[in-house]
Simulated scan of single mutants.
Amino acid sequence: MNHRIVFAAAVLAVASAAVPAVSGETMTVYRSPSCGCCGGWIDYIKAKGYAAKVVMLDDMEPVKERLKVPEEMQSCHTAVIDGYVIEGHVPAEAVDKLLKDRPKVTGLSAPGMPQGSPGMSGAPEPFTVYAFGPDGAKPFMRFNVK
């Protein structure tokens, strides 16, 4: 077998593994203009290869209600991509997995504002990203676990 073909195939496999499982749609991120950490998460998600359209809102409550984000799952900003809701400081790895696996859920949430999560400063603390929907919430992925 030609070694150049094998090498090219290996390079292509590695390169495609590094690209997020983005559906080609732009992520729409709703945020308050007064929240600095939201901007940090948007910068992070863009650096991970996602396109983001930012919508500034003074009142986030109507967005969270319309998108059916349960109160216990809420955080500072809310995003939508390919029919899924992404609530708060959810790492790109969880978004990638969501878009690849396509579970029957409303979306993902990193409730509250976990210290050290993408866009948040401070020493990283363990946190859970939850999948939520009409049947409730369940753990989806854990982060910063030693």
Rank of each mutant, 00 (worst) to 15 (best):
K146L: 05
T78M: 02
L12R: 12
P126M: 12
R102G: 10
P139M: 10
I45C: 02
Y84A: 01
V90P: 00
D82L: 02
L99C: 04
G36D: 05
V69T: 04
P33V: 07
E125G: 09
A10R: 11
L67A: 05
K100A: 15
A131L: 03
A8V: 11
T106Y: 03
S117Y: 08
G116P: 06
M113K: 09
P91A: 06
S75A: 15
E87I: 11
N2H: 14
L57H: 03
L12I: 14
V145K: 13
Y84K: 02
P111S: 06
A92S: 15
F132Y: 06
D135L: 09
A110G: 05
A17Y: 15
K48Y: 10
P124N: 04
K53R: 14
A8N: 07
A137Q: 07
D82Y: 01
A94M: 05
L67H: 07
N2E: 14
P103D: 08
S109M: 09
P139Y: 06
V14Y: 09
V11K: 12
Q74W: 05
D101L: 13
R142S: 11
G24I: 13
A18D: 11
I81V: 13
G83Y: 10
D135E: 14
D96K: 01
D58K: 13
G49Y: 08
C35D: 06
V54D: 00
G107I: 12
A51W: 00
S32H: 11
C76W: 01
G40Q: 00
L57T: 04
M113A: 09
F140W: 14
Y50K: 02
A10H: 08
F143A: 00
M60A: 04
E25K: 14
Y44K: 05
M73Q: 08
E72Q: 10
V63M: 06
K138F: 04
K64C: 04
G133H: 02
F132R: 00
V129Y: 04
M27A: 12
L57C: 03
D82P: 00
M120A: 06
A21F: 13
A110W: 08
P103Y: 10
F132S: 03
P126G: 03
A8F: 12
V19D: 03
V69F: 05
V54A: 00
A92H: 09
S16L: 15
M27C: 12
A9E: 15
G136L: 04
H3R: 14
V11Y: 12
V63N: 03
S109L: 10
I45S: 02
S109D: 06
M113I: 12
